[in-house]
């Protein structure tokens, strides 16, 4: 199935405090649900930044107008969630599409 290659991606920044706070939340979510989320750092890896920019319109919209981190992008649904106020419930809804 084509969807097998579609990833759930978390774009984060190494020096973003909200991203730091989210790491244990995301790790626990992955552990509890078995759902895989790929973590991509965007300030120190141009390839990751470029990938994030390629989904720029959707992510910027989710971030309130500009590209920001933490941002989560679902390649299957093309939907994104963004910002500091993300918890396991929001992750679950985003992952489910």
């Amino acid at each position: 199935m084509a969807d097998d290659n579609k990833r759930l991606i978390w774009f984060f920044g190494r020096e973003c405090p909200h991203c730091r706070q989210l790491h244990p939340v995301v790790d626990k979510f992955i552990e509890d649900t078995g759902i895989e989320i790929v973590k991509l750092e965007v300030w120190h890896d141009d390839k990751n930044a470029q990938l994030m920019r390629s989904h720029g319109d959707v992510i910027a919209d989710a971030c309130g107008g500009s590209l920001g981190v933490p941002a989560f992008y679902n390649e299957r649904t093309g939907k994104a969630i963004c910002g500091a106020r993300i918890d396991a419930d929001r992750l679950q809804k985003w992952a489910n599409g």
């Binding site: 020096e15 973003c16 405090p17 730091r20 300030w43 930044a49 994030m52 981190v69």
Partner: peptide, 27 residues
């Protein structure tokens, strides 16, 4: 968190030329 952000803007200044917000991304 303030310390992390101050380190982040300096890191971006070194790597990208300006003190960009570490919680945004350049276009």
């Amino acid at each position: 968190a303030v310390k992390t952000l101050s380190e982040g803007v300096l890191e971006n200044n070194r790597n990208k030329g300006l003190k960009y917000c570490p919680c945004r991304i350049t276009t």
